[in-house]
Design a protein around this nucleic acid. Structure first.
Lengths: 339, 339
DNA sequence: CTGTTAGCGCCTTCAG
DNA sequence: CTGAAGGCGCTAACAG
């Protein structure tokens, strides 16, 4: 059983190489009958179509789009928001007959795959900042989601305004406010931000959201006391619970919790209920993202819905769209029983 | 800024294409000084090295190895055993200057990437059986782990013997035994296996382990009552807890739980303790895999340690090793406080 | 150490 | 529908 290339197959079938190529790539260039016959014969031979590497070299595109996650696969994929986004991406790519290549934001070797893909969709700023440099210089198409890269198209929501809206929905005069923030500083555990240096003011969605919260509080004549701004390193239950517990034990106890993800919001509500607090009478909670689980929980969580699956689809369309417009997606404030 | 190919770069630097190529690929072929100068110049030009797709076409290998997970990325990556395995794989690949491409066992389009990789390491039988067919016919190197594919090299442990050993370590005369098994049938929730058709007797590690348990019980003059064999669809806490609870509520209550993963074993112990049972006085528990968490838990869990990270490294070495030997890795029975 | 050359497997064009 | 030719970007072998 020798090499099985387009040329060798053409010879054994006794047709021209162009015909084999056309049978796979341009059905209109030959009769249906001949095409069927060829495809059938190839299948029996075990020839599954033109070599993709050669095809990619010749055509200049491979039909593979890399999605770069901001964090490790572990983390991203266990987060319902990220995983919804990925579903949207993969659905829309499929629609265009494109393939998805998942790439960890911790990886270092973008160059290793760069030549095999048609471009990159980056979901959140990669944890490994070296990647950002590589993306900046890449000659391939790059689309960013939830952060910006100079000169590259992006897809986002207005995090500042959304956070503002959500805060305005819960804040009352005289409230004591606590913010349970996501990745505000570069620290491993849940902890008050205090005066530690902020992570990356510019492009971080966490800071845009914080800005929105601050603006809302200002408008309500409130201020955020120093120790009431908490950093949570990852959107998972353990970290969130830890922070929620600590914040609920503070004196005076907050009457409002502004949470930068629904996972955090849910954990906070659980802790509050466990302490015997009533929601929303004793304490109000607002989340961010919009995940299904908040609808099944009681009380339901007031939150900003950003429809991550549609965001994934939009990202692919923007990626494919040749004009480099940055896309601002709509969000929706949905009131639940928690406010 | 034009195309930036090896040829164009060679021309602008005024050297031969071979020299550029050698500068990147075969340092011994030119002086250190010249090489440095060239690399430096390339960096300034923004040329990051030869195009990988062309290189792959020419050399016939890309330096990328695909790891095919048996299941979705979500599941695999949240399982400590799988993630240890992946760590081992990625460490060993790095050592050989190779790159890792993660591929979901649910995907359908192996052909899409097949031409870009040097081969496949399959960790567990892919959930999507269509992939198995494709792997069978692939002209690339294929190595299987924890299952077998006719004519392909594989890496495994002796699951039957290991299960036997672990069972023999806990069984006593007159025991009432329950088995908390992993993916024994094709069903979504935790449930007794009953007379439902078994999943895939041949290659499934779950069934090899069950065989080992059965042999041990036979040797101890015990039998496994019909409803005491449980199916758990995924090795996660929720499913495991559900099964453990049900089994512990049966009458007579089991005095031994044979668990097909440590995650299941831990959940089972938690449930037992919560019911006020004493371990090992009232009930003995044995796990499988060997994960760190069992050492931090009290009581520590008797289990089969299979050193998944080393298994990952071994898999890569076997993949790279040209002779198609199937490798049987050692395991270690470690007694804990649970038996 | 350099330059040249012949492909790796494919797609496209163009004349038949 | 065929057949031939050119080239995608690169590497390996060989002669200088």
């Amino acid at each position: 059983m020798s090499k099985l290339t387009l040329k060798s197959v053409a010879k054994t079938l006794g047709v021209s190489t162009a015909t084999i190529s056309n049978a796979f790539n341009r059905p209109d260039q030959l009769s249906v009958a001949l095409r069927q016959k060829i495809l059938q014969a190839c299948h029996e031979l075990g020839y599954f179509g033109p070599n993709k590497a050669a095809q990619s070299l010749r055509k200049g595109s491979s039909g593979i789009v890399a999605v770069i996650l901001s964090d490790s696969l572990e983390y991203m994929v266990s987060d319902p928001v990220a995983s919804q986004f990925l579903q949207g991406v993969s659905r829309e790519l499929e629609r265009h007959q494109l393939h998805l290549l998942l790439f960890s934001g911790q990886a270092t070797n973008l160059e290793a795959i760069s030549d095999f893909v048609d471009g990159f969709i980056c979901y959140g700023a990669p944890r490994n900042t070296g990647l950002i440099e590589q993306l900046r210089h890449s000659r391939k198409r790059v689309l960013t989601v939830d952060f910006d890269l100079a000169g590259r198209p992006s897809v986002n929501i207005d995090n500042e305004q959304a956070a503002f809206d959500s805060a305005m929905a819960v804040l009352r005069p005289k409230d004591t406010v606590a913010v349970l923030g996501l990745r505000l500083i570069d620290a491993a555990g849940s902890q008050p931000v205090g005066d530690k240096p902020m992570w990356d003011n510019q492009s971080s969605i966490a800071h845009r959201r914080l800005d929105g919260y601050q603006r809302a509080m200002q408008q309500c004549g409130l201020t955020l006391a120093a120790d009431y701004l908490w950093h949570i390193p990852e959107s998972n239950q353990n970290y969130a619970r830890e922070a929620a517990r600590a914040v609920l034990a503070m004196s005076p106890r907050p009457t409002v919790l502004l949470c930068m993800s629904d996972l955090i919001g849910l954990s906070a509500m659980r802790e509050a209920l466990q302490l015997g607090l009533r929601i929303p009478q004793d304490i109000r909670v607002v989340g961010f993202d919009g995940i299904e689980e908040t609808l099944r929980y009681h009380p339901t969580l007031t939150s900003v819905w950003q429809f991550s699956d549609q965001k994934g689809e939009a990202a692919v369309r923007a990626f494919l769209n040749p004009d480099d417009t940055t896309l601002q997606l709509p969000y929706e404030l949905r009131l639940g029983e928690s406010s």
